[in-house]
Amino acid sequence: MITCVVHYTIDPAQIEAFERFAREWMRLVAKHGGVHHGYFLPAEGASDRAEALFSFESLAAYERYRTLFGQDPEFIAADDIRNESGCVLRYERTFMRPLLPNG
């Protein structure tokens, strides 16, 4: 399993748009074979930080999902939420291998 951790810097004034964006990506990850572990939004502390975690069975499975970026109309529509609202100022992806309690 490979887990993608996405670190976001968001515009706190656009949190509702970010939530719409996040809901769409959770749906798309699940639709295309991944498991979304959720988005983690500001509660206390820095108000411009958010995180997302989702997993695919392998890096190859993730790469198949990535081939849809910029081509699939649903992926484009989800990105349009981000692009039109300006809710995401910056993001960075990190790929990690989970160490689970039962593994």
Rank of each mutant, 00 (worst) to 15 (best):
T3C: 14
T3E: 14
C4I: 12
V5E: 09
V5H: 11
V6M: 11
V6G: 05
H7P: 01
Y8R: 03
Y8P: 00
D11S: 06
P12D: 04
I15N: 04
I15S: 07
E16W: 02
E16F: 06
A17E: 00
A17Y: 00
F18Q: 02
E19K: 15
E19G: 06
R20E: 11
R20S: 10
F21A: 04
F21C: 06
A22Q: 06
R23D: 14
R23V: 06
R23Y: 02
E24M: 15
W25F: 14
M26S: 09
M26V: 09
R27Q: 03
V29A: 09
V29W: 05
V29P: 09
V29Y: 03
V29Q: 05
A30T: 06
A30W: 00
A30F: 02
A30I: 03
K31I: 04
K31W: 03
K31V: 04
K31C: 02
H32Q: 00
H32W: 07
G33V: 05
G34R: 11
V35I: 13
V35Y: 04
V35N: 12
V35E: 15
H36V: 03
H37L: 13
H37C: 08
Y39W: 10
Y39H: 13
F40N: 10
L41S: 08
L41M: 12
P42A: 06
E44K: 10
G45M: 09
G45S: 09
G45R: 08
A46M: 08
A46W: 03
A46P: 12
S47H: 09
S47N: 14
S47D: 15
D48T: 03
A50N: 03
E51C: 06
E51G: 07
A52N: 15
L53S: 09
F54S: 12
F54N: 13
F54Y: 15
F56Y: 14
F56P: 11
E57V: 13
E57A: 15
S58N: 09
L59V: 14
L59Y: 12
A60C: 05
A61V: 05
Y62D: 12
R64W: 01
R64Y: 02
Y65W: 14
Y65M: 12
R66Y: 08
T67H: 01
L68T: 01
F69A: 10
Q71I: 15
D72M: 01
P73H: 00
E74H: 05
E74M: 04
F75K: 00
I76H: 00
I76P: 02
I76R: 00
I76G: 01
A77D: 02
A78G: 08
A78C: 06
A78Q: 05
A78I: 07
D79R: 10
D80P: 02
D80G: 08
I81H: 03
I81P: 01
I81Y: 02
I81C: 03
R82V: 02
R82W: 03
N83M: 07
N83V: 04
N83D: 10
E84L: 14
S85L: 06
G86W: 07
G86V: 07
G86R: 08
C87W: 01
C87R: 00
V88Q: 09
V88F: 06
L89D: 05
R90V: 04
Y91A: 09
Y91C: 07
E92P: 00
R93N: 14
R93W: 10
R93C: 11
T94M: 11
T94E: 13
F95D: 05
M96V: 15
R97C: 10
R97A: 13
P98V: 12
P98L: 10
P98K: 07
L99H: 12
L99I: 15
